[in-house]
Structures are given as structure tokens and as C-alpha cells.
């Protein structure tokens, strides 16, 4: 295996990234102030930080992404050995995909994909 080019590539990219970050850190004028980083409110001091909370629906989308990510992971070796694993291997993965399709239909019917 020839990993040294990858190692060299990673070292080079880390060097470039740290160089650019360090350049903007050292060359620019730094006058840190608490008012600069706080949220801007007109007329009164800010109560809270400016981070807004996410909707739970983003979380549902992330969960579904995990599930189908793993499905694709289990399908990778199948794509390579499709012609060797015979009919039994074919039907085993078809059963697996059918289970996940069942989950997908359930999720569609419950309306987890709709956006209110």
C-alpha cells in the first residue's frame, strides 16, 4: 500500500490551513471587546446569546440520514460481489432492503417528511 502520498497531502493541507489561520491571527489588529461578540440589540442590553434553537424536524431528518447511510454501507460489498454470492445472497439483501423500505413507508405515512 502506498500511503505516504496521502500523509504528505494531509501534512501539506494542515500546514496551509494553519498558515492561513495564523496569518489572519497575527497580521490583523486585535482589539478584543465584549461588546463586539455579544448579540446586537437596539436600546437595551442583550438578554441571551444569539443562537436560535433548531426545530426538532432537523433532528428527524438527521436520524433518517443515519439509517439510510448505514443501508448504503451494507450495500457496498453487495455491489462488488453480486455475481458471486448467488441467489441466496441476492434474496438476503433484498429482504434487508425490504425491511428498510417498510420503515420508509411508515415514515412517509406518518408525515415525518412533510414540512409544516
Amino acid at each position: 500500500m502506498s500511503y505516504p502520498p496521502i500523509a504528505g497531502f494531509m501534512v501539506l493541507s494542515a500546514f496551509i490551513a494553519s498558515f492561513i489561520l495564523g496569518l489572519s491571527f497575527f497580521v490583523a489588529k486585535l482589539k478584543p471587546d465584549g461588546e463586539k461578540v455579544s448579540a446586537y440589540e437596539c436600546g437595551f442590553d442583550p438578554f441571551d446569546d444569539a443562537r436560535a434553537r433548531f426545530d426538532v424536524r432537523f433532528y428527524l431528518v438527521a436520524i433518517l440520514f443515519i439509517i439510510f447511510d448505514l443501508e448504503v454501507t451494507f450495500c457496498f460489498p453487495w455491489a462488488l460481489t453480486l455475481f458471486y454470492s448467488g441467489l441466496f445472497g441476492f434474496y438476503s439483501i433484498v429482504f434487508f432492503l425490504g425491511l428498510l423500505t417498510l420503515g420508509f413507508v411508515y415514515e412517509w405515512q406518518k408525515g415525518a417528511l412533510d414540512w409544516e
Binding site: 436520524i63 433518517l64 443515519i66 439509517i67 448505514l70 443501508e71 451494507f74 438476503s92 439483501i93 429482504f95 434487508f96 432492503l97 425491511l99 428498510l100 417498510l102 420503515g103 420508509f104 411508515y106 415514515e107
Partner: peptide, 13 residues
């Protein structure tokens, strides 16, 4: 493989 599929179905539901 089937067990992994059942687990993922359980996670979805």
C-alpha cells in the same frame, strides 16, 4: 444482516 435491518427499522419507528 437481517438483524441489522430489524435494528434499523426499530430505530426509524
Amino acid at each position: 444482516l437481517i438483524g441489522a435491518g430489524l435494528l434499523l427499522l426499530l430505530a426509524i419507528v
